[in-house]
């Protein structure tokens, strides 16, 4: 049996240590650490509910071994919010009613935020490409697309956190 190691990471900007053995996934460690916004859907890369960003890049935390993120910055949904106001994506999801059961939402916002850092003028194709690893069984995606378009507009007009 491999040893348990203390893995130094930053979670949403704050330094932490995650205790993990070699075979433990980041998904399990983050939830044990209390990051319940990171959801466990399928544990095999299909649903995207467990998505977090490592150094700004969205990954499925169920397919990421905790040891491999040593020294990295991890961003979850919680990390996107400013202390005073919600991230434009989160605000737009609430305004557009893009959340039903909400299970898929943290992963979707994490994936969409990565795309919006590449382009603030996303076409529907860009949005579909960004969300191609996120399953939503409730909304039918229409309102999710609307929310992402709205957030892009807000960010283009300089309405984001700075």
């Amino acid at each position: 049996m491999s040893l348990e190691k203390a893995i130094p990471v930053k979670i949403n900007g704050v330094p932490h240590e995650l205790l993990a053995r070699a075979n433990e996934t980041l998904l399990d460690c983050l939830r044990q650490h209390g990051q319940f916004e990171v959801k466990n859907g399928c544990e095999k890369g299909d649903c995207g509910a467990c998505a977090v960003q490592i150094e700004g890049e969205a990954v499925d935390s169920c397919l990421t071994l905790t040891w491999t993120v040593e020294g990295r910055s991890i961003t979850t949904l919680e990390g996107l919010n400013d202390t005073n106001k919600p991230h434009p994506l989160i605000a737009a999801f609430m305004e557009q009613g893009a959340v039903q059961c909400g299970y898929c939402t943290p992963g979707i916002i994490v994936a969409a935020e990565e795309m919006l850092r590449e382009t603030l003028n996303p076409t529907d194709d860009d949005i579909a490409l960004a969300l191609s690893g996120n399953l939503c069984r409730c909304t039918g995606y229409t309102k999710i697309f609307a929310a992402i378009r709205q957030a892009a507009t807000v960010l283009r007009e300089g309405g984001g956190n700075d």
Binding site: G45, E57, A58, T64, A111, L129, L131, S132, N134
Partner: peptide, 12 residues
């Protein structure tokens, strides 16, 4: 690459 997996999979 455009039709491969989802974004989180393509990133890895």
């Amino acid at each position: 690459a455009r039709v491969f997996g989802g974004q989180m999979v393509r990133n890895r």
